[in-house]
């Protein structure tokens, strides 16, 4: 199966799973249609479209197995999926840290970590650059938003800062 088929399967599973969840939603006396009416329409359409996508994928596979080999993805430039994984992980860490250590600390750690992941610093000078720019990012955004623009930023439960 190709990407389409897999994507179709995931969507189909989601649609069916959510359809099951629409059972037993409480009805209201004011609204002639319950809260399950519209979701069911959407989910049924989603299930049908996903099934069609899977079918199209399988059918294409059979019709053009030989052709598929020829049209395999052009040897595109190598993609750095490892870095994508690291970015998501560092970002997730940031999201988890935020409520505990607050915006200023978490942002400093996040920017420093991600910058060094993208461009591993070598030597004290480059480390200093990374740390200073991370500090600047955290400090400047904090001051601009909280002090000048009255936008509240998350505070840390542990640090109360």
């Amino acid at each position: 199966m190709t990407r389409d088929g897999i994507a179709g399967l995931i969507c189909l599973a989601l649609a069916i799973g959510m359809l099951v969840l629409t059972r037993g939603l409480p009805q209201s006396s004011f609204v002639p249609l319950g809260p399950d009416f519209y979701p069911r329409i959407v989910l049924v359409i989603m299930a049908v479209l996903s099934a069609l996508l899977i079918a199209a994928d399988l059918w294409q596979r059979r019709a053009g197995a030989a052709l598929a080999a020829a049209s395999a993805e052009p040897a595109a430039e190598r993609r750095n999926y490892r870095l994508v994984g690291i970015t998501f992980a560092v970002f997730a860490g940031y999201v988890i840290l935020l409520p505990f250590v607050g915006y200023r600390v978490a942002t400093f750690i996040f920017v420093a970590a991600l910058q060094s992941a993208f461009d591993p610093p070598r030597g004290a000078r480059r480390w200093a650059m990374v740390l200073i720019s991370a500090l600047a990012s955290a400090a400047i955004t904090f001051i601009v938003f909280q002090h000048y623009l009255s936008v509240l930023l998350p505070r840390g439960k542990w640090t109360d800062w």
Binding site: R79, N80, L83, V84, F118, P120
Partner: peptide, 8 residues
């Protein structure tokens, strides 16, 4: 990011 090459 996919297109980044280690240290660039």
């Amino acid at each position: 990011i996919e297109k980044m090459k280690g240290s660039e």
